[in-house]
Design a protein around this nucleic acid. Structure first.
Lengths: 351, 351
DNA sequence: TTGTATGCGTTATCAT
DNA sequence: ATGATAACGCATACAA
């Protein structure tokens, strides 16, 4: 069933059929109805491939992420897909893993598929060695690139992100202002946003004129879901004589592990050990007490990212950088807030 | 850059170019090299749309799932995508939500997009009222359909699933044989696999000649991630006088909530309350003690599903139903196994 | 407002 | 082994 068939049955030319298909105004209402009737009766749907060839687009967006089963990335992928589809776009999902070569080849795969754009979910797509980021620059010469939680200044690259520096800073300040200064910063990623969080933690100490202890900044180099490994890691630090009365984690799962550590060592939370997680994921409410955690506004970010994406494809000029402010969600793993207002919420309006 | 350009530069016809592109054997090695050289130099890649039009396929598979941010579904989507891509296929992700109309329209969207097949992740795509499943039968007349964790007998529909009946049964038996008979079965889905789990629980009692108590089978009708709601639900049951010394949950998150309930009511786990979850997800290791949980072999299922899919598309005859056995992973929320061997593992070899 | 003719970049069927 | 040519199904510039 093609437009030729429809055109014959409706007694018009294929051009007219094509016009009603594309909502072209230059069709007599009467003719339009006639054609639509035939289409309806035949259950006609246009051939997507032919359409793609003619328009050089199939309204498809590539979604690149390291691991769509990761708690945080899965949420992001979900929000992005829903927003894209609401906007009339399809999503091709591509899980890349964390190796540069795989990220490159995945991106090329999407380019060869002729997607209209690709959104790269997670700051792990930006390499430390800037020369390695050429694969992004190359791609940006073909289609607009949307980065989620990364900051990359380049034409045709659009970034939507959370101000992790400030969010981590405020989280640390809230602990400091509660009287805790031996705060262990626990992280498992050195990506762009990972570095920002760390810098935020550090700046909190500077801001309060407190010394920074290297030993209190611990990088866990293990599996992304290895709670027991993290727990054992903390125990090892403890046995090595490291003393800390709070843990600020770069991800909820690290905080969850810290809570487990506390329980195994009979530490009261938050009295003996305060814990703050990051992402405000489902893990935060799965434990007892529930995790205080930084909400990094993922849903807002995704909505805005897709808005920017669609507008860009429509030819509108859009800002290349949109930043949301995170906010601390206080729950059971930290002491109730005092009168101190240093850690007050400072939410910027969405761009 | 098209095959015309390449053909000119290589001094051959477009037919020859197309042949080397598709690995056709009828090309003199010398000619092949010449053409490949030109392609290399020009960085030529074939136009995917034209290719799709010609072959009536773009090697794309639709992945339908209610919510790709759900812990379990996210894992499934991840495994499926990776396996598909390794097999040379792209994945279009489509999150449908749980409404029938949305599932229908999503499936149609994929059909119009001319995917080669669609995999429906989760038994929630099979409706209770069988007439409502016509949308699946209709789709199956166009392309092969792959169902994950659903059982639907129809031509061109292939099912890969876990034997949830037996898995739930064994989980229940393990509790009964540990001396606990007031086992609360807590579930939040009445889908096909949801009903199977429930039936498995029930059959365990029959098998041990124990009476079944309706009050001990509780359906929680709330959000899929609402730990606190579930926890409150259990508390309500408790206050209503319901007594139970074990909880068998149809999902880890329900079990997590049960653990939280235990902690809030100062119940020792597993001494006062045993808990078994389902899915063996990351939640199982995020709590203290860790959850005993049923592993439903998701990774194996996904691998097999994709294998079946690709073979089917290749024209090979494949079984329409492949069943894996689940297995109980014992951790801290149940008593250590006794000498009793009723709940021993009985793992079937993968099909 | 409608129709004609051509292009889009492949694949595939014939010849040669 | 290679080449000429016709599909594939739609969009669109141009003509009427």
């Amino acid at each position: 069933m093609t437009i030729y068939d429809i055109s014959k049955m409706a007694g018009v030319s294929i051009a007219t059929v094509s016009r009603v298909l594309n909502g072209n105004a230059n069709v007599r209402p009467e003719t339009r109805r006639k054609v639509l009737d035939v289409m309806e009766r035949c259950g006609y749907t246009p051939n997507a491939f032919a359409r793609g060839l003619g328009l050089n687009s199939m309204n498809t967006i590539g979604i690149l992420c390291a691991d769509s089963s990761d708690l945080y990335l899965a949420k992001a992928v979900y929000y992005i897909e829903r927003n894209l589809r609401a906007g009339g776009y399809h999503s091709i999902l591509c899980c890349t893993g964390y190796e540069l070569e795989d990220k490159k080849s995945s991106l090329n795969l999407l380019l060869n598929q002729k997607v209209d754009s690709v959104v790269m979910v997670g700051s792990n797509f930006i390499e430390e060695d800037d020369a390695d980021n050429d694969y992004i620059r190359d791609a940006a010469r073909q289609i607009p690139l949307m980065l989620l939680n990364a900051d990359f200044d380049h034409p045709n690259v659009y970034c939507t992100l959370c101000d992790d520096f400030k969010a981590a800073q405020e989280a640390a300040l809230s602990l400091i202002d509660a009287g805790i200064t031996d705060i262990l910063y626990l992280y498992n990623s050195r990506s762009y946003s990972g570095q920002n969080k760390l810098a935020g933690y550090q700046s909190a100490f500077l801001q309060r004129d407190l010394p920074l202890e290297k030993d209190l900044q611990q990088y866990y180099d293990g599996g992304h879901e290895d709670v027991d490994g993290i727990c054992a890691f903390l125990t090892r630090l403890h046995h090595m004589g490291l003393s800390f009365h709070a843990v600020l984690a770069s991800e909820d799962i690290l905080a969850t592990a810290a809570l487990k550590y506390a329980r195994l060592h009979d530490l009261r939370v938050p009295e003996d050990l305060s814990i703050i997680g990051y992402n405000n994921s489902i893990l935060a409410s799965c434990c007892e007490p529930e995790l205080t955690s930084v909400d990094n506004r993922l849903e807002d970010i995704c909505r805005q990212l897709v808005k920017t994406l669609i507008n860009t494809l429509d030819g509108n000029q859009m800002p290349q950088k949109t930043i949301f402010s995170g906010r601390l969600i206080r729950r059971g793993t930290t002491l109730p807030e005092t009168g101190n207002c240093h850690a007050a919420e400072r939410t910027l309006p969405p761009a």
